[in-house]
Design a protein around this nucleic acid. Structure first.
Length: 344
DNA sequence: AAACGTCGCAACCGCGGGGTA
DNA sequence: GTACCCCGCGGTTGCGACGTT
């Protein structure tokens, strides 16, 4: 027995709302409120189903809605709350006055996910990619670690390269399983011309560093930052209550899981200072670091950068003093043959 | 200028929870 | 206890706008 449809599909209009329909709905709700959505379209003279009306009202017509760009503070709140509750958009939206769950969800899917990925942070777990790799790698024997590095290159390179070049580059995973078989497919043979900024080198270094990196200790910093960078205590109380978990549980999860999204100082929350909590990174907030991945809008930023950049990266790496790859600091000490990508 | 690809937003869909008779 | 109704939620899709070739 199937569910009874909310309306007769044949008799209702679907698709974009016209200004006339908006007016009818808005003026009806202004007079009668939003009780019983099933009756609203009928009474308002609309050929729409109640569900469609509710959606239109809650996502677009409501007078208290904020339209337009998300502020940086809002973005930080979304990211932080998402790291605690995941895709519970309504919960997250409830902490952002004037924003709907649909807004938040769309913004997350179209912007924030990419932003985090571009910073080397897995948008699902909110951990740096390198952490995920390191967690797996610590349980593996050295030969398996080599395989992991290889697999990781296969998995991440498409996304990474797309983010960096804004071009879809199709690769097939290397067919061999050992590091010595790490020969890129023909598509990559053409890549060196696009690797002027050392993209491939960075990916190689980042992944291999990731594997060698010790999982680091978390700190209280991220939580403190969260409270100080946009979410008031009171707001957080409400949120913690709404997500059905104890305050301490949420705090603990933040302390354990979340990289330092917030500001180290007055700089932007999205600055390169978004290093892993407890990392040794000593990056200066706001300073453009060599390993930072590009964002839309600064795609050409590094086009003509100092040619000594690669040396600088290598030096940093040798010193082990926390060069930034994506968003965090990693150590570099993997044999060349595990990471070598032949560049023709 | 046209064709094609990508992006972002609005809207839809199906499921599940809560309330009620 | 259960059947039904209404509503909210999260995932997905459609389509116009915009950018690139």
């Amino acid at each position: 027995m199937g569910r009874i449809p909310c309306c007769e599909k044949e008799s209702v209009k679907r698709g974009q709302w016209t200004p006339e329909e908006d007016n009818k709905l808005a003026s009806y709700i202004a007079q009668h409120g939003t009780k019983n959505w099933r009756l609203i379209p009928k009474n308002a003279g609309l050929q729409r189903c109640g569900k469609s009306c509710r959606l239109r009202w809650t996502n677009y017509l409501r007078p208290d809605l904020k339209h337009g760009e998300f502020s940086e503070a809002e973005e930080q709140i979304i990211v932080k709350l998402h790291s605690v509750v995941g895709n519970r958009w309504s919960l997250i939206a409830a902490q952002l006055p004037g924003r709907t769950d649909n807004d938040v969800k769309n913004h997350w899917n179209t912007k924030l996910k990419k932003k985090l990925s571009g910073m080397g942070i897995d948008p699902v777990t909110h951990k740096p990619f390198s952490h995920l790799m390191a967690e797996i790698a610590t349980t593996l024997a050295p030969p398996q670690v080599a395989h992991l590095a290889e697999a990781a290159l296969g998995c991440f390179k498409d996304e990474m390269l797309h983010l960096l070049t804004k071009k879809r580059v199709e690769f097939s995973p290397p067919s061999g399983s050992s590091a010595q078989h790490m020969v890129m497919d023909p598509a990559l043979q053409n890549f060196p011309s696009e690797d002027k900024d050392g993209t491939i080198q960075r990916i190689k270094m980042g992944l291999s560093r990731a594997i060698m990196q010790e999982p680091n200790n978390s700190s209280d910093k991220s939580w403190d930052m969260m409270l100080s960078s946009g979410i008031a205590d009171q707001q957080m109380d409400g949120f913690v209550g709404a997500c059905g978990r104890s305050y301490q549980a949420v705090v603990d999860e933040f302390r354990y899981d979340v990289p330092s999204y917030g500001n180290e100082g007055e700089g932007s929350g999205w600055s390169p200072s978004m290093c892993t909590a407890g990392s040794t990174c000593n990056a200066v907030p706001g300073e453009q670091l060599p390993g930072r991945l590009h964002e839309k809008g600064d795609e050409h930023e590094h086009e003509h950068e100092d040619e000594g950049e690669e040396d600088e990266i290598a030096n940093d790496a040798r010193k082990g003093d926390g060069m930034l790859f994506g968003s965090e600091c990693m150590l570099w000490d993997l044999p060349d043959d595990l990471t070598r990508i032949p560049i023709v």
